[in-house]
Write a protein that binds this DNA or RNA. Structure first.
Lengths: 180, 180
DNA sequence: CGACGCATGTAATAGGTTACATGATTGA
DNA sequence: TCAATCATGTAACCTATTACATGCGTCG
């Protein structure tokens, strides 16, 4: 997946590794980073496969930058992936279950007493509301920058799911307080 | 994570591997399976760690069953995990981005022409609506069986997020048709 | 002087998927 | 007879995370 995230970024303009990390992947909203251990080997591999090419830019008094651009072969691979449906079938299987630590725990809240369960749900609600603030701020900044509408809509999807999560948590709290 | 899913199942009653796979993980709703390559080694490891113990039940004309129960040490580990907040902080980071093939593609729909984009969104909407049907049916069957309310609510969360996704997709279609 | 930002990378480990391997019974 | 169900497991692989390693410049 990181493969296509990198190719997709390079469709826009050339990037060097640190640039991708800080400008593209990270700046959209806090905590959304990519780790070095995945990024640099991936760039190396894509370069070896001929999907991206690099120019090394030497800088005085600073480390050299390896500036990557997408090749025509890379563009072709990217566009094929973009039009394909790979990985879309099993969407929901992984989406809300098996990866979401809170939701998994929630399946077992029957083993907690009422107070502990309520505390855990309330804590999650606080996390979600903080997340929503961050996402809304990120959206405002994207709107200001005139970023393309699809990307803003993707962020909008994040907001929508977090809102749904908050509503669900509130409803769950109410159910527990009323003894289900 | 699989570790706690297994321990959590064994809190309810003893299970053997195939039983877990078919009754517990799979039957809740279609396509939610666990693969052998993960389950059996995990059971072995948990047994070695003393968190679960097994009794081998020989059957005539059928393979033996390895029936696992949770130990008191396993229960302790499980309850500690249940009360902890491990993995809950970074929830949204992974949830809607980076794992969801359709959403990732959607960020790059600017590179598709309008018809292709609409087709892809419509296809996703069909998938989501099919998923919603499955989830709603699963919920009905859980209600009939009298399964504990927390678990039904978890399924309800799945339904809620898929409904939000469907609404978002419809809204996106409208935006595109109106030229954003 | 120490922390942080810039900039690159490697190594070890963890987690998960796919494919392979076996073998009996049951139903179409 | 062929496929499916029951039942266990291993091996190879891919992906991702954490930690380690280097080194200069700047700001407090």
């Amino acid at each position: 997946m990181i493969k296509y995230l990198i190719l997709g970024s390079l469709m826009e303009r050339p990037f060097h590794g640190y640039d991708l990390k800080s400008n593209f992947f990270k700046k959209i909203f806090k905590d959304f980073g990519i780790n070095d251990g995945q990024l640099y080997p991936a760039l190396k591999k894509l370069n070896q496969e001929g999907l991206i090419e690099k120019v090394i830019e030497h800088q005085e008094g600073a480390p050299s930058r390896h500036i990557y651009s997408i090749t025509s072969q890379g563009e072709e691979i990217f566009m094929n992936w973009l039009l394909s449906y790979d990985g879309e079938e099993s969407s929901f299987r992984y989406e809300f279950f098996r990866k979401d630590a809170f939701i998994i725990r929630c399946s077992y809240f029957q083993y907690l007493d009422k107070t502990d369960a309520i505390n855990k749900i309330q804590h999650q609600l606080d996390v979600v509301e903080k997340t929503l603030e961050d996402l809304n701020m990120a959206k405002q900044s994207m709107l200001k920058k005139g970023i393309n509408p699809y990307r803003i809509n993707v962020l909008g999807y994040g907001i929508k799911t977090q809102e749904a999560r908050a509503e669900w948590l509130k409803d769950l709290l109410m159910q527990i307080e009323n003894g289900f």
